[in-house]
């Protein structure tokens, strides 16, 4: 069986991270498996973890009254899920639900925060990686808002 550190090494999020850092981080992690339909995170509950998805499909959802769960995005092998553990009040803003059997590594947020505080260099390195993903998700969200495939367009802003 592969160690947590070996598993982290295979994941794109940790590409290029020195082995010593990976070892340090792997101390906060554990393997976990979610079965189809199982919630990985629930909106407004404590966000104690950061998930590294090794395999499987995860839906990021919110609940709409009189509609039910609304999926905003799906995450897949090689993605990560969760940054709410980084900032107070450390609570999830969305639901995450396994859509099939999901194998992931669950990293303890408190443990990670502590290691980052103790080693600001590692903290900055991780923060850069998170910032990149946050920026990508923001850009994707903007593109989603553009509704590019729709035939309806907002009227031209200014016609002279």
């Amino acid at each position: 069986m592969k160690s947590i550190e070996q598993l982290l090494q295979q994941h794109p999020f940790f590409h290029g991270l020195p082995a010593t850092d990976r070892q340090l981080i792997s101390g906060c992690g554990e393997n976990c498996v979610y079965s189809s339909g199982e919630y990985i995170a629930r909106e407004n509950t404590p966000a104690d973890f950061f998930f590294v998805i090794r395999e499987g499909r995860v839906a990021v959802e919110t609940y709409m009254p009189s509609h039910g769960a609304l999926c905003l995005q799906t995450l897949h092998d090689g993605d990560i899920f969760g940054w709410s553990w980084l900032f107070p009040p450390y609570r999830w803003t969305f639901d995450a639900r396994a859509l099939e059997k999901v194998r992931a590594i669950r990293l303890d947020g408190k443990c990670l925060r502590q290691k980052c505080e103790e080693d600001p260099r590692l903290g900055f390195e991780l923060m850069k990686r998170f910032a990149k993903i946050v920026a990508e998700r923001l850009q994707a969200t903007r593109l989603q808002l553009l509704d590019v495939y729709s035939t309806e367009r907002p009227p031209p802003a200014e016609v002279r």
Binding site: T151, R153, P156, E158, V159, R160
Partner: peptide
Amino acid sequence: ISGGAVRADTR
């Protein structure tokens, strides 16, 4: 084109 005029303004 579908969605509107490409050259919408006089400029």
